[in-house]
C-alpha cells in the first residue's frame, strides 16, 4: 500500500486506540458505564411517560432503547467535540499533522461504543419476544456509515469553531438537548401534530436517521426515502464541517 495512505490509516488507528484506552482507563467497568448512560435515560423516560403519565404505547421500553442508543452516539461525539482540539493543544502547536484526524478518532471511538451496545438492544428484543431481522446485516452498516458522516461533519465544525469562540461548548450542550426533544426519539413521529411536522421531521437533520434506526431495530424495515434524506443531510453536514475546518485550520496553532 502507498506509504502516505498507510500512514494516514495508522494515525487514525493510533489516535482512536488512545481515545478508547483513555476513556476506559484501567477500569473493568468502562464498557458498562458506556451502556449505563442510555439505559438510565431509558429508565427515566419510562418512569415519566409510562408509569406516571400512562402513555398508551406497547413495548415502550424497547422503543426508547432503539432510539436512545444511536442518539447517545451522536450526542456524545458532538458534546465532546469542543475539547477535541483544545485537548491536543501542545501537539497542534508543535507538529504539523492532519488535524482533522483528531475528531475522526473521537467519533470513531463513540461509533465503537455504539456497536458494542447493539447486543443490549438484542437482549431487550429477546425479552420482548421480538424477532431479529436479516435486514440488520445490510441496514446497520448503511446507517452506521450515514451517521458517522453526519456526526463527523458536525463534530469537525464544532471543534474548529470552538477554538475561536470558546463558549460554543455551552451552546453545544443546549442545542443538542433541544435537538433531542425536537427529534422523534421518546415519541413516535406519527404523534407529531401536523403543523409541527415540518419543524420536527422535515428540516431536522437527525429525524429521518433516528426513525430509520428504530424501524430497523424494531421491525427490520428500512425505508428508502428516509435513507436518502438522512444521507443527503449527512453529506451536507460533512461538506459544511470540512469547509469550516479548511477555512480555519491554518490558524489553529495561533489561537490555541
Amino acid at each position: 500500500m502507498n506509504k502516505r495512505v498507510q500512514h494516514y490509516l495508522d494515525l487514525i488507528v493510533v489516535l482512536t486506540q488512545k481515545e478508547i484506552k483513555v476513556r476506559y482507563k484501567n477500569s473493568v467497568f468502562g464498557y458498562l458505564w458506556s451502556i449505563g448512560h442510555p439505559l438510565a435515560f431509558a429508565f427515566v423516560f419510562f418512569i415519566a411517560f409510562k408509569v406516571v403519565m400512562k402513555v398508551q404505547m406497547e413495548d415502550y421500553t424497547l422503543f426508547l432503547i432503539a432510539g436512545l442508543f444511536p442518539w447517545q452516539w451522536f450526542s456524545n461525539s458532538v458534546n465532546a467535540a469542543p475539547t477535541v482540539f483544545w485537548g491536543n493543544a501542545s501537539l497542534i502547536k508543535k507538529v504539523n499533522f492532519s488535524r482533522h484526524i483528531l475528531p475522526v478518532a473521537t467519533v470513531l471511538q463513540d461509533t465503537i461504543h455504539f456497536i458494542l451496545s447493539i447486543p443490549v438492544i438484542v437482549f431487550f428484543m429477546f425479552i420482548y419476544n421480538k424477532p431479529i431481522s436479516l435486514s440488520w446485516l445490510y441496514g446497520i452498516p448503511l446507517l452506521l456509515a450515514i451517521q458517522f458522516l453526519l456526526t463527523y461533519g458536525v463534530s469537525l465544525m464544532v471543534s474548529s469553531i470552538n477554538l475561536f469562540f470558546r463558549d460554543l461548548e455551552r451552546l453545544t450542550v443546549i442545542l443538542t438537548t433541544l435537538l433531542f426533544y425536537f427529534t422523534p426519539i421518546i415519541y413516535p413521529e406519527t404523534m407529531v401534530p401536523e403543523r409541527y411536522k415540518f419543524l420536527v421531521i422535515d428540516i431536522n437533520p437527525l429525524s429521518a436517521l433516528m426513525v430509520s434506526w428504530r424501524n430497523l431495530f424494531l421491525n427490520g424495515t428500512l425505508e428508502p426515502a428516509s435513507l436518502i434524506v438522512s444521507f443527503v443531510y449527512s453529506v451536507l453536514a460533512f461538506v459544511l464541517g470540512y469547509t469550516v475546518y479548511r477555512k480555519l485550520s491554518w490558524k489553529f496553532a495561533e489561537v490555541i
Binding site: L11, V14, V95, F97
Partner: peptide, 15 residues
Amino acid sequence: RENIMLNGVLLGLTR
C-alpha cells in the same frame, strides 16, 4: 510504550 507508538506515528512514521 504506547506513548512511543503515538508519538512516532504523529511525527510521520508508520506503525
